[in-house]
Design a binder for these strands. Sequence first.
DNA 1: CGCATATGTAACATTGTAAGTTGCGTGATG
DNA 2: CATCACGCAACTTACAATGTTACATATGCG
Lengths: 146, 146
Amino acid sequence: MHLDGRLSRMLHLLLHMAHAEGPITSGEAAEMLNTNPVVVRRTMAGLRDAGLVRSEKGHAGGWTLIRPLDSMTMMDVYEAVGKPRIFAIGLADPAPECLVEQAVNASMTGALHAAEAMLIAHLREVTLAEIARDFEKRAASHVAKP
Amino acid sequence: MHLDGRLSRMLHLLLHMAHAEGPITSGEAAEMLNTNPVVVRRTMAGLRDAGLVRSEKGHAGGWTLIRPLDSMTMMDVYEAVGKPRIFAIGLADPAPECLVEQAVNASMTGALHAAEAMLIAHLREVTLAEIARDFEKRAASHVAKP
DNA sequence: CGCATATGTAACATTGTAAGTTGCGTGATG
DNA sequence: CATCACGCAACTTACAATGTTACATATGCG
C-alpha cells in the first residue's frame, strides 16, 4: 500500500483481543485484517517487545493482551509499531547550503512540527478503553436500528 | 524519493524568482533544486494554472512570478501543487464492516483531522513575504558572522 | 526564412517503503 | 512424535514521487 496502516491495524487487533476469551492466532488475526499471518506476526513483534501482548507457541497458542485497555493509549501502540514516519510531505533537502532554502525549511518544519505535536497530543489522550466504549455504543445502536 | 518535496521545492523557487531580475529558465531552476528541468516544468505547471507564475517560450523565456510575495501564503502553493496527501499513516480500510474497526477509524481520523487542521492553519498564516524576510535576516547574519 | 532557445507533454525507468508471499526453523502440547 | 503456532529470513509486489529520454511547439534574433 501507499500508506502505513500498522497503527490502525494493531489498534483493531488489540480491541478484538480484549474481547476474546483465549489467545488469538496469527491466522485468525490475519482474517480480521484481510492480510497474511506473517504480516501479523511481523507487526505484532513490536507490540510483544513493548510488553503490550504475549505470544505463545504450540497448541492453544497465539497472542494474548497482557495490559488493561485503560492503561494503553494510541501513542503506546504507535511507539510499539516503531514510530513510523507521520508525514508524506517534507523537505527537499534537510540541510541545504542555500540560505533561501534554509528559510523555507524553517517555515516548513514549523508547520510540520506544530501538526505533529497536535497529532501526538491526541494519540496520548485517547486510551484503548475509550475506543472500546465507542465500539460498544456502535454495537448497541447497530442492534437497535438497522 | 519516498517523501513529497513539491511544496518545499516550489517555495524555494518562488523566493528565488522574487529576487531575480528577469525570468528564470527551467534549467536554472533545476540547478537550484538539484533536479531535472522536466521535473521543474511538471511541478511549475500547477503554479502557472493557479495564476502564481507565468511561463514564456523562446529566447529570454522562462518563469516569472506574477503575484506579490505578501499576497501568497504557503497554503496557496500547497493548493497549486495539487494538495498532495499529507500523512504517511492512515486507515487500513476506510469503510470497514467491522464495528470495532469503525471505532478505530473514528479515533484515527479524529487525531489525523486535528493534526491536518493545525498544519493547514499554519500554511494559511505564513506568507511568502515572511519567509523572504526570514531569509534576509539569515543573509545579514551570514555576512556578519562566519 | 532558419536556427537556437525554452516550454509542453508523453512515455518510460528508478527508487523507497509497506505489504504480501514462500520456505524453513523452533518450541509447545496432546 | 505428529501437529500446531510462532520466529524469521529472503524474495516479490504495489504504488507514487522523482528522474530521464524523446519529441513537438512556440518565440525571437540575425
